[in-house]
Design a protein around this nucleic acid. Structure first.
Lengths: 177, 177
DNA sequence: GTGCCCATGTAATCTGTTACATGATTAG
DNA sequence: CTAATCATGTAACAGATTACATGGGCAC
C-alpha cells in the first residue's frame, strides 16, 4: 500500500456512456445535452435510453472534470453548447483506443443464453429457434435498408451489427442438426 | 392509463444477472451463493464481476419472489443451497426464450467505438489497428485452446465469442484498404 | 490456541432509469 | 394570450461495485 495515492491522482476511467457522449460531441463539433439525448434515443442500440437523468449529470461531471467547455449559443436560446476541451479530446482518444475494452466481448444477451437452449424440450426449442431466426432476419433486412438509405450517423456500427446478427444466424443454422 | 394496474400485477422481468444466476443454479441443480460468485468470476465474460454485493442481494430477491427454494446442506456447513422452484423454472424458461432480448444487439464496446476510429490520425490509427488485431487473435487462440481442452461449462457461449472475434477481425481486415 | 482461508454478508457509493417539475419558444 | 412543445433539469429508486466486517473450520 502506498500506491493507492498514485492511483487517486489519475482521474477515473470514462464510463461507456461518458465515452459515447464525448464521441457524439466530437462528431458534431459542439452540441447541447438535448441533442445528445436525441442521438442516443435514435441511433444507438436500444441499450442506451438517453434518459435525462443520465445525460445531464454525465455532462456536468465531464464539465467539472475539465473535459468539456461550455459555450453560450448566443442564438437567443439560453441553452448551453458543450465542446471538447484539449483534455477532453485526449481523454476521448484514450477511451477510443483502449485495446482491452475495445476487444472485450461485451454483454451479449444471445451468447449469455445460448448454452441453455439445448436444455429446452424439443418442440419448444424448435419453435423458439424459428422465432429467433425470423427476428434476426428481420433485423438484418432492416439494417440493409438503413445502409442503403445512407444517411446513418454511424455506418460502421451498423456494419458490425449486421455482421453480429449474421454470425448468430450462421451459428443457429450450424447447430440445427 | 388504467393499464398500469395490469402491469403492476405482473412481476418485474428478470435482470440479466438474475437470469444468469438462475441458469447457473439450473445447470448445477442446486448450489450456494458463493458457488455462483465463483462461476461468474471465472467463466462469464469479464463483464460480470460476481461481486458479493450483487449476488447475495439478487439471490435474496429471487428467494423472496418465490423463484428459489432454500435447502440446508446438512453437511455440517451452515451454508444454504438454493434450487429452482417450479415458478423459478418457468421464469427461467421465459427469460431464456425471450426473443426480443435474445435478438438484441447488447452492449458491444468494439461496435460502440468503430465509427470514430476513422477520425484518428493515420499513424495512430494504424498502430492501434495492429494492437487490436493482435489482441483479438490472442483471444481467438485462447478460446480455441479452451475448446480443445473441452471442460468448459458453457461451450456454446465460447463458440459464439469466437465467432464474434472472428467477425471483428474480418471487419478490421475489410476496412483496412 | 492462533492464524489463515472459506463463505457470507453489509455499507457507502456510483451510474443509470423512470417519472415528475419547470422554464422558454413557438403556433394558433 | 393561450396552449402545445422544446429543452433542461430534479427526485426517488434500482442495481451493481468496491471495500469492509464477521463467523466458522482447519492447519500448525
Amino acid at each position: 500500500m502506498g500506491a493507492k495515492f498514485m492511483a487517486k491522482t489519475k482521474s477515473r476511467a470514462l464510463t461507456e456512456l461518458e465515452g459515447a457522449a464525448l464521441t457524439v460531441i466530437h462528431r458534431l463539433k459542439s452540441c447541447t445535452p438535448y441533442r445528445i439525448r436525441l442521438d442516443f434515443q435514435q441511433s444507438r442500440s436500444r441499450e442506451w435510453s438517453g434518459s435525462a437523468g443520465a445525460v445531464y449529470p454525465a455532462l456536468r461531471r465531464l464539465h467539472a472534470r475539465g473535459l468539456l467547455k461550455a459555450q453560450q449559443t448566443g442564438e437567443g436560446r439560453r441553452s448551453v453548447n458543450y465542446a471538447l476541451s484539449k483534455t477532453g479530446s485526449e481523454a476521448l482518444t484514450r477511451w477510443l483506443t483502449d485495446v482491452d475494452r475495445a476487444a472485450g466481448s461485451g454483454l451479449d444477451p444471445f451468447r449469455c443464453r445460448a448454452d441453455f437452449w439445448r436444455g429446452l424440450p424439443k418442440p419448444e426449442r424448435d419453435a423458439f429457434r424459428r422465432d429467433l431466426t425470423d427476428e434476426l432476419e428481420k433485423k438484418c433486412a432492416n439494417i440493409v435498408r438503413l445502409m442503403k438509405a445512407g444517411n446513418e450517423p454511424e455506418p460502421k456500427a451498423l456494419e458490425l451489427e449486421l455482421a453480429l446478427h449474421k454470425a448468430r444466424l450462421a451459428w443457429l443454422k450450424d447447430s440445427e442438426r
